[in-house]
């Protein structure tokens, strides 16, 4: 195609001169990278902190299943929203609006489910004892520490994408990182009390999401 009928344009000349082949991004490649990071981190955590002493019965308990399922859902929906939001064609449309809605709904629903399980558990101990704040802060620190590397991996992936709503993408990435690390921590944390999980895991997830929402947009602007 001749270019004669276009005004000579130094910018276009420069961009054409800079053209190199690129591989179109695919969300599933990024999802696979993320999954790889989860596996690596899970092994490191298991190596360093060990698995919780447990029985098959404990793993089948409603409280344990609730905690694992909720955190895994947070991680999956957060990661899906973050990755899908990297395509300008998708963010603009209505296709992923339901994902943001699901994210907003998930937390209240998860907490309500925990409360129901809790109500059936007939816990008679004192509230403070159940909260066990020393262990709780340990859990928060652990989840935050393991979430940060995940957030870093996500940030690298996001920077390669084209997020057209950086604040939302950052919040989704924070939820994904926190959810992934908390879901992994389930394997070594011996606390299944829904109150404990809601307070301390909730605090850790909120912290990471807040940090991501505040700092990440600066890094991913383009």
């Amino acid at each position: 195609m001749p270019t004669d009928f276009h005004r000579a344009d130094p910018l276009i000349d420069a961009l054409v001169a800079d053209l190199a082949p690129v591989r179109p991004r695919r969300w599933w490649r990024e999802a696979a990278l993320l999954a790889g990071a989860v596996v690596v981190e899970a092994f490191m955590v298991a190596e360093i902190f060990g698995m919780r002493p447990t029985t098959a019965d404990a793993l089948m308990a409603p409280a344990f299943m609730w905690k694992t399922a909720s955190l895994t859902l947070v991680a999956i929906i957060g990661a899906a929203a973050a990755l899908l939001s990297l395509d300008p064609a998708v963010t603009g449309g209505r296709r992923i609006r339901w994902l943001w809605g699901a994210l907003a709904l998930l937390l209240p629903v998860a907490l309500a489910a925990g409360w129901l399980i809790d109500a059936g558990a007939a816990g008679s101990e004192a509230l403070l004892h159940r909260l066990d704040w020393r262990a709780g802060l340990g859990c928060v620190r652990h989840v935050v520490m393991t979430a940060l590397p995940m957030l870093l991996v996500l940030a690298v992936v996001i920077r390669r994408g084209a997020p057209t709503n950086p604040e939302r993408t950052a919040a989704a990435a924070g939820l994904a990182a926190a959810g992934l690390s908390a879901a992994g921590f389930v394997l070594s944390c011996p606390h299944d009390d829904p109150l404990y999980v809601a307070v301390w895991y909730g605090l850790a997830v909120a912290l990471i999401t807040g940090v991501s929402r505040l700092l990440l947009p600066r890094l991913i602007r383009w």
Binding site: L11, D18, L19, V22, R23, R25, A89, A162, W222
Partner: peptide, 14 residues
């Protein structure tokens, strides 16, 4: 915007 299109051309799904 032209520069952004250039930098992010790999995010277009053909």
């Amino acid at each position: 915007t032209l520069m952004a299109i250039h930098a992010k051309r790999h995010t277009y799904d053909p």
